[in-house]
Simulated assay, not measured.
Amino acid sequence: MADSDSLVALITGAASGMGLALAKDLLAKNWRVALLDISQAGPSIASELGPSAVYFHSDVSSWESQAAAFGGAFKTWGRIDFVALNAGIDDKEDFFGPTADADGNPVKPNLKTVDVNLVAVFYGIRLATHYFRKNEGRGGKIVLTSSDAGLYALVGVPQYTACKHGLVGITRSMAPILAKEKITINAVLPAFVPTGLAPPGLIDAWPKEHITPMSTVLKAFNMFVDNDEMTGETGECSLDTVYLRKQPEYANESQRWGREEGGKVWALVYPG
């Protein structure tokens, strides 16, 4: 990639937590950063970060809103080199609660979590790919913020768990195809990191010896940003270590064939 003083990053969910920490880290390395968020504090945060930061109000669950923000970032600097699809929310309803309204009819579930944590990521990958294709053959890098809930079930939080598992699958599924265009895609999977995403009371109740520091998450992001060859990797961040987690072992040789040699058959139907 080009020298860091000319590189442009776009980060969703950038006004707090991991997104803001990543923005500050990149700015300290002379990147220019587009911060996407729905926070009313976004403009003032970008102003405090300096002239190399710009804020775009964006509801990432809306294609139109996210596309407008990507377009604004590209118009501002004429390029996008790295995209961190980091925005996320927790489950917004008790999926195991009442299922009927006052008249006894089934109530449609609130799937906003899926819209933000999964659908919006597909939007972001499509937009990143679009703008990376304008980089004169240089490609680009995508990092998804998954979670250790992408590996282990978070009991009672099904939407969040499903989405974070989905991001692991997206990373592994899309990497070989995107690599043909010099686009890498990886995922960070943090364990418990105290951020505004945590429900009230959870941070105080969580034992300090089981808290993963933000520095470990930044270590994972930097590993994926700095390496031009690493793709399809999922970095589990626990305590002070980043663990590169592989997909489960094949159950038998038939399953191995189905994913390796059988890939030639799949390619007849899905030629990407």
Results as ranks from 00 to 15, higher is better:
residue 160 Y to H: 05
residue 269 V to N: 08
residue 80 I to A: 00
residue 83 V to E: 01
residue 69 A to D: 03
residue 115 D to T: 08
residue 220 A to W: 06
residue 109 P to K: 02
residue 58 S to K: 03
residue 37 D to S: 11
residue 5 D to V: 13
residue 45 I to F: 14
residue 232 G to C: 09
residue 267 A to Y: 13
residue 196 G to H: 09
residue 145 T to E: 09
residue 10 L to V: 15
residue 166 G to L: 06
residue 160 Y to D: 00
residue 213 P to K: 02
residue 221 F to M: 01
residue 262 G to D: 11
residue 231 T to Q: 09
residue 5 D to L: 11
residue 200 P to I: 11
residue 230 M to N: 04
residue 240 D to A: 14
residue 30 N to M: 05
residue 19 G to N: 00
residue 103 D to G: 08
residue 106 P to F: 13
residue 191 A to C: 09
residue 159 Q to P: 11
residue 24 K to L: 05
residue 161 T to G: 12
residue 148 D to W: 00
residue 231 T to H: 08
residue 77 W to D: 04
residue 31 W to A: 02
residue 146 S to M: 00
residue 174 M to Y: 13
residue 218 L to F: 11
residue 206 W to C: 09
residue 229 E to G: 05
residue 32 R to E: 04
residue 79 R to W: 01
residue 80 I to K: 04
residue 107 V to A: 10
residue 263 G to Y: 12
residue 49 L to F: 09
residue 35 L to D: 02
residue 79 R to T: 10
residue 261 E to I: 15
residue 248 P to M: 04
residue 118 L to I: 00
residue 8 V to L: 03
residue 117 N to Q: 07
residue 165 H to D: 02
residue 224 F to P: 02
residue 195 T to N: 07
residue 123 Y to R: 00
residue 89 I to Q: 00
residue 29 K to E: 13
residue 153 A to G: 00
residue 245 R to Y: 10
residue 114 V to F: 13
residue 23 A to K: 01
residue 100 A to P: 00
residue 108 K to L: 11
residue 231 T to W: 07
residue 131 Y to S: 07
residue 126 R to E: 12
residue 196 G to I: 10
residue 220 A to E: 09
residue 167 L to C: 10
residue 46 A to L: 07
residue 236 E to G: 06
residue 155 V to H: 11
residue 57 H to M: 13
residue 95 F to M: 11
residue 263 G to H: 13
residue 202 L to I: 11
residue 3 D to V: 11
residue 270 Y to S: 07
residue 2 A to P: 15
residue 251 A to Q: 15
residue 105 N to P: 00
residue 104 G to L: 06
residue 271 P to T: 02
residue 100 A to D: 07
residue 26 L to P: 10
residue 112 K to F: 12
residue 220 A to P: 05
residue 259 R to Q: 13
residue 213 P to Q: 04
residue 260 E to V: 15
residue 190 P to C: 01
residue 142 I to W: 02
residue 258 G to K: 07
residue 66 Q to H: 13
residue 101 D to W: 05
residue 35 L to T: 02
residue 61 S to G: 08
residue 185 I to N: 04
residue 252 N to R: 12
residue 55 Y to V: 06
residue 82 F to G: 01
residue 149 A to T: 00
residue 154 L to W: 09
residue 76 T to G: 05
residue 237 C to K: 05
residue 182 K to F: 08
residue 252 N to F: 15
residue 179 A to S: 12
residue 174 M to V: 10
residue 42 G to L: 06
residue 167 L to V: 07
residue 254 S to H: 15
residue 207 P to R: 05
residue 226 D to T: 14
residue 254 S to C: 12
residue 31 W to H: 14
residue 113 T to W: 01
residue 221 F to G: 02
residue 27 L to G: 03
residue 65 S to E: 03
residue 213 P to G: 02
residue 152 Y to E: 10
residue 5 D to H: 15
residue 48 E to Y: 07
residue 92 K to W: 06
residue 215 S to R: 10
residue 153 A to Y: 06
residue 117 N to M: 10
residue 86 N to T: 09
